[in-house]
Simulated assay, not measured.
Amino acid sequence: MSSEELTRFEKARIVGARALQLSMGAKPLIEVEGSLDPIDIASLELKKGVIPLGIRK
């Protein structure tokens, strides 16, 4: 594992924080088709690498 890869715990923390932002009214940073759950949107944003959050190791 390289130092740039996120652990599953880091991924869960980032997705959770971003999903909270989305549920409080933040605009999605990806194109969303249909009505998706904020967690699903945050997961897609993480896969595409557009989440404006980071982890300090």
Rank of each mutant, 00 (worst) to 15 (best):
Arg8Tyr: 10
Ser3Met: 11
Lys57His: 15
Val15Cys: 00
Pro52Gly: 04
Arg13Asn: 06
Asp40Lys: 10
Pro52Gln: 03
Met1Glu: 11
Gly34Asp: 04
Leu22Asp: 01
Ile55Asn: 02
Gly49Lys: 02
Arg8Ile: 11
Leu46Phe: 02
Ser2Asp: 02
Ile14Arg: 00
Met1Trp: 09
Ser2Ile: 10
Met1Tyr: 14
Val50Glu: 07
Ser43Lys: 11
Asp40Thr: 12
Lys27Trp: 09
Glu10Thr: 07
Arg13Ile: 09
Leu46Ala: 09
Lys48Asp: 12
Val32Met: 01
Glu10Tyr: 13
Gly16Ser: 09
Ser35Asp: 13
Ile51Leu: 11
Ala42Met: 04
Ala42His: 05
Glu33Ile: 15
Ala17His: 09
Pro52Arg: 05
Lys27Gly: 00
Phe9Glu: 15
Lys48Phe: 10
Glu33Ser: 14
Leu20Cys: 04
Ile39Ser: 01
Glu31Thr: 13
Ser35His: 06
Ala19Phe: 07
Ile39Trp: 12
Glu5Asp: 12
Met1Ile: 14
Glu45Asp: 04
Glu33Asp: 09
Glu10Leu: 09
Ile41Val: 13
Gly54Asn: 07
Ala17Arg: 11
Arg13Gln: 12
Glu10Ser: 04
Leu36Asp: 04
Gly34Trp: 11
Arg13Ala: 15
Ser43Asp: 09
Ser3Gln: 08
Pro52Met: 05
Ile41Cys: 01
Val50Pro: 15
Glu33Trp: 07
Leu53Gln: 05
Ile55Lys: 05
Gln21Lys: 10
Gly16His: 01
Ser23Asn: 12
Glu10Trp: 14
Gln21Gly: 07
